[in-house]
Write a protein that binds this DNA or RNA. Structure first.
Length: 720
RNA sequence: GGCGCGGUAGCUCAGCUGGUCAGAGCGUGCGAUUCAUAAUCGCAAGGUCGCGAGUUCAAGCCUCGCCCGCGCUACCA
């Protein structure tokens, strides 16, 4: 254990424009929850904060699309996400929200402090401006034709059809979603954090753990992919990044600052400071001080995130904290990778996901089955895979057959033979060890091994190896089953009743240990299990795992002789094939056109892009579209997406670059008849001038199809 | 194209600074068993550790090249 006096654990703030899916859970929230629950059981001082990230253009875009206010969007999803966390047992000390006044004040104070510390440069850049609506346009407010896949409704930051990340200036014929007009570029001033000035110390800190001459962490404890990603960025050089935006939904740049009108803090400064605001609110609610958790050297700050957030939490936020001056740096950022679903990437926009709020509705009382499976499949080193079949198998084979069964066996035998009381034992009586079939068991030694297992489990959690920790947990259950199997109390009860007492007593100690050790992973099961053996639910403020470890270390049993247990019950229920089939069917159904009518919170518009604003015939007539034939095709050097085509337009041959290399090989396209936008302004890409654009059709999966005239149609003819 | 992380038994994955590291769980086969939601326990199955070279007394573990997956990034239409 790090030896720190207190812990501040954060989990990535969910963006309040959609529900949670299992990838979120396995990526950040479950590992954080396990870690925190473990710390509490070990009597550590820990605060676990999270909250909804409620600002940004995506929310306003969504609000406009649904005809509601941004406030209504965030209220809806904040409530949904908060309740989902509670239902699946993620035990934050506080789940805050960035729309709270306290957060606005906190982040504004941060901005002022950075300004005071001379951490910004002010720069004027050209941004798209909507003259009709009278405001600057966030990237998400601008749509236009995607340069990669020709989707006519790509956003200024990203094309949701092909997933390309874009900038507004990439879009062909951009238009404003506010008014439908074509935006114009206008100068606007923004505050840029001088990240370049932080590059050197960040590099040292990331790679050696040393900052300002102090050893703050050991890089060997950080995950490979986290270090790799950071160094990849550092090697490319850090550049000043804008900390403000022209937005209308977010935290205002403090008004006393000149030119702040209409400016909002960008997500870099808004979201991570949400961790601090949340801690402040928690302190207010509980009569505590928040500063020690963020400013004291003996606090361990740990960020649980997904891999998409690595540089944000390992470089940018630390730079902000350092630039402020008073704050500590994270001691570790154990980012997880991604979870795939049934062989495909989880996609909110394509509705390929298992939504957690739907799971808890479909599987009431089986929250821990999902938690268990997600922990088992946690993407700790590389991407992992969730399948419904796998979920069924682990639930039935491991939770039902092994864990629940072991508990049931012990309780049934105790009730049958000893009237439900923990039997007194002769600690010197021999039996067969549950840990090793060839070993003679000794009561104290069995407890000792149990102690070792619990310590090993804890040490794996401390090192963020949650899958391994879970495996050790199940090892205890398997050893318990083996203990019964080897000693056959149902036979020996007539032959050697003293031995049976030892075996059953030991079995009960295993069950009691499991009731504590399983709590970080499966809190609902812990509570249920504690009930079965007539113990109170764990009080997380009391460090009960620590007590048990101390007891076992001294050779004392967890459950005292004579303790009365309850009736045997099953902890888990088997998941039948039909239920799994239904979930798979549901997944596949929502993946298709049914997405339009589904009750999930997935945007209905994802199947079909919204219709673009109406244009006149004159607008259309500006386009000169011609038939043509691809004569030659070759892959562009150094480009992943571009094919260089020579296209016969009848009257001339054009060189056209087309972003279809990820869909078609050169051989695929040579000889194809195509339709070409012939009067598009030429554009130089990768050093080659493209003289037109090949028109493609695209479906919801982002697959492309050539648009072409009838077989044998000539080249160079107009399309109207 | 550049960079990063992965590519290990049918499946899901462990393998720290190179030398019991060729492993675990599940599935499969055989055997034992009945207290238990036909659950449990034991044994077994021989996987070129992505491909090809190299360094070393010794390489999944180091180096170089290549292939595949994912991510970030690029003069990105």
């Amino acid at each position: 254990m790090s030896g720190k006096k207190r812990y501040l654990v954060t989990a990535a703030l969910p963006y309040a424009n959609g529900p949670l899916h299992i990838g979120h859970l396995a990526g950040a929230y479950l590992p954080a929850d396990i870690y925190v629950r473990y710390l509490r059981l070990m009597s550590k001082d820990v605060v676990f904060v999270c909250g909804s990230d409620e600002h940004g253009a995506a929310i306003t875009v969504r609000a406009r699309k649904e005809g509601v206010t941004p406030r209504e969007i965030v209220d809806k999803y904040h409530a949904l996400i908060r309740d989902t966390f509670e239902k699946i047992g993620i035990a934050f000390d506080i789940y805050h929200r960035t729309s709270e006044q306290l957060h606005h004040e906190t982040s504004q104070d941060f901005f002022r402090k950075l300004l005071e510390n001379n951490q910004f440069s002010e720069e004027v850049t050209e941004q798209y401006y909507d003259e009709v609506a009278g405001q600057f346009l966030a990237d998400r407010y601008i749509i236009g034709t995607c340069p990669v896949c020709a989707n006519p409704d790509a956003y200024g930051d990203q094309c949701e059809k092909c997933g390309s990340s874009l900038s507004p200036t990439d879009l062909i014929s951009p238009r404003s979603t506010l008014s439908g007009s074509a935006p114009v570029k206008r100068p606007t001033k923004h505050w840029f954090l001088r990240l370049d000035r932080h590059e050197n110390w960040l590099r040292e800190w990331i790679n050696t753990g040393v900052a300002d001459g102090h050893q703050l962490h050991n890089p060997a404890d950080w995950k490979n992919h986290v270090l790799g990603q950071c160094n990849s960025w550092l090697d490319q050089g850090l550049h000043p990044r804008a900390m403000t935006r022209d937005l209308d939904w977010g935290v205002d740049v403090p008004q006393e600052i000149p030119d702040s009108a209409g400016k909002k803090l960008y997500v870099w400064l808004d979201a991570p400071i949400g961790y601090i605001s949340a801690t402040k609110q928690w302190a207010i609610d509980h009569g505590k001080k928040w500063e020690p958790y963020w400013k004291a050297d003996d606090t361990a700050l740990i960020h649980f995130i997904g891999k998409d957030n690595i540089v944000f939490h390992c470089l940018i936020f630390p730079a902000i904290l350092k630039a402020h001056g008073d704050f500590i740096l994270p001691v570790n950022v154990p980012a997880n990778q991604f979870v795939n679903l049934e062989g495909r990437k989880i996609s909110t926009s394509k509705n390929w996901a298992v939504w957690v709020h739907e799971y808890v509705a479909d599987f009431p009382g089986q929250e821990d089955a999902l938690r268990y499976n997600m922990i088992k499949k946690m993407p700790e080193q590389g991407d992992s895979e969730f399948t419904w079949k796998g979920f069924q198998e682990t639930t039935n084979n491991e939770l039902v057959n092994n864990l629940a069964n072991f508990v049931n066996r012990v309780l049934v035998l105790t009730n049958n033979y000893y009237g439900g009381f923990v039997p007194a034992v002769d600690a010197n009586h021999e039996f067969k060890s549950g840990w090793d079939i060839d070993k003679t068991g000794v009561y104290d030694e069995e407890l000792h091994i149990l102690h070792e297992k619990l310590e090993a489990l804890g040490s794996e959690i401390e090192r963020f190896n949650f899958r391994e920790a879970l495996r050790i947990l199940m090892e205890i259950s398997a050893a318990g089953n083996a203990l019964l199997q080897f000693n056959e109390p149902w036979k020996m009860v007539k032959v050697d009743p003293e031995q049976v007492k030892v075996v059953i007593n030991l079995g009960l100690q295993f069950v009691a240990a499991l009731s504590v050790a399983c709590q970080p992973f499966m809190p609902f099961t812990s509570k249920r299990l504690r009930g079965l053996i007539n113990l109170n639910a764990l009080d997380e403020t009391r460090g009960e795992l620590l007590f048990i470890l101390n007891d076992l270390a001294e050779g004392n049993p967890v459950l005292p002789t004579g303790h009365a247990i309850g009736a045997a019950e099953h902890l888990f229920s088997r998941i039948p094939d039909e239920v799994i089939a239904a979930q798979i069917a549901k997944l596949e159904a929502t993946d298709t056109a049914a997405a339009n009518t589904t009750t999930t919170n997935t945007p209905a518009a994802t199947m079909y892009a919204p219709l673009a604003p109406t244009i006149t015939y004159d607008d259309f007539a500006k386009l000169d579209i011609r038939t043509g034939t691809i004569l030659t095709a070759e892959k562009m050097e150094k480009s992943k997406k571009l094919l260089r085509l020579n296209v016969d337009l009848g009257f001339e041959t054009r060189t056209i670059l087309s972003g279809i290399a990820e869909h078609f090989t050169p051989e695929d396209v040579v000889g194809r008849q195509v339709v070409v936008l012939a009067n598009l302004a030429p554009r130089v890409m990768m050093g080659v001038e493209s003289q037109g654009m090949i028109l493609m059709a695209e479906n919801a999966e982002g697959k492309l199809s050539f648009v072409r005239p009838e077989e044998g149609w000539g080249n160079g003819f107009g399309v109207k």
